[in-house]
Structure formats: C-alpha cells, structure tokens
Amino acid sequence: MALWEAVLELADDHLVLGHRVSEWCGHAPMLEEDLAMPNMALDLIGTARTLYDHAGALEGAGRDENRLAYFRDERAYVNCLLVERPNGDFAQTMLRQLYFAAFMEPYWRQALHSSDAVIAGVAGKAVKEMAYHIRHAGEWVIRLGDGTEESARRMQSAVRALHGYTGELFEAGADAGGVLPDRAALRGDWDRVIGEVFAEAGLRQPDGVPMQSGGRRGLHGEGLGHLLAEMQSLARAHPGAVW
C-alpha cells in the first residue's frame, strides 16, 4: 500500500508552498496584496492539514498532521521542487503560484470522482481555491509581463528561473492504485492555461531548459532544508509538548 505516500506528496506540496507564500505576510508590494497572499497561504495550509491527517490515518502508525509536518527531515519530504523554490521577487512568486494552481485545478477536478471519500471531499473545496489562485496569479503575470520594461524583464527572468521545475509536476510518484489522478494526463489542461496567460502577458516559454526532478524521492535543492529548519525549530526543541 503506497497510497499514504502518494497523499503525503500532495500534503508536502501544499504545506511547503503555503509556507513560502506566508513568508510574504507584511512585506507585499501593496497592502491589498498583504491581504491576498495570506488568503492563498491559508487555502494551501488548510488543504495540507487535511491531507496530512489522511496520510497519517492511511499509514496507521499513529502520526498526526504535526508529527508529519514537524518531525521529518528534508530527505523524507516528498514535495515537488517547484514549490520549495525561494520567493524571489513578486514576479517569481506569482509565476510559481500560477504554475502550481494551473496544475492542481485540473488535478482536483479529476479527484472529485476519487473512490477515496476524503480525497473527493478535499477536491470539492480545493478545486475552487485553485481556480481563484489561477485568476489572481494569472492577472498579475499578465500585468507584470505587459506592464513596464522593468516588469517585463523581471517576468521573463522568472519564467527562465522556474520553467525547469514544471516538468516534474507531471511525473508519477508513489503508486496510488488509481485512487488519485494520473498526473501526466493533466498536461493538456496546464498547457492551455499557461498558454493563454503567456499570450496575454507577452511571455515566451523558453526552449532547451533542462527539466529538474527528484522531489518525490526526497532529492531536493538546498533551500528546503532551511525552510524546514525554521519551520520545525520550536516544535523540535520541545518534543512532546502541546501547543
């Protein structure tokens, strides 16, 4: 049974990205975005919590959401590499959000019909959240891509920085035995959304960027370790404590 590991991949994706987005809180380019970004982070963290609980239950070893989130090292984290990329500037953060949401929206749409009731339940809520994230991030990518010279340059450089992490989104991970959607099958939906936004933003998909992979096997970049060190420091300093 590897379903719990497949659910764990999903949970890690959501927590790590939610954590990254939450790093913006209080530092956004305008006050309105200081409110928008926590909304997105809260959506992601909320989904992660349900998924961790579910993964823990499926595993059956008594690990709850906090055990799974706070007491695993980077080699045990199985998120995709895209979500752990540092925030960079606002262009990179918005593009990362768009890439992820454009993948997760069709994913959850498929998962609405999952034979696993918890997954189907999460999908019902998350599919709407991801549709909004696509809109929010997509509108920003369009504005930055087709704004000033500086913003267009930053946006295009965000594409160069992140494009190499998009291939992994569609790779198979732990075998979910048909309970979770087939990632590779979502490529068409993702291409269509990204294509539409890029066309309006005047952005190009770069050619010949080598695709990175490894997150699902716990092979990460160096940034994730720092993220986890920060996130887990307090919980690990007081093992067994209740907060």
Partner: peptide
C-alpha cells in the same frame, strides 16, 4: 508565522 509550532497555530 514561519516558526509557529503546530499547523493549527500557524493558520
């Protein structure tokens, strides 16, 4: 925010 000791507290 980035160091909150549980996911509930973080949210």
């Amino acid at each position: 925010i980035t160091r909150a000791p549980s996911l509930k507290r973080k949210a």
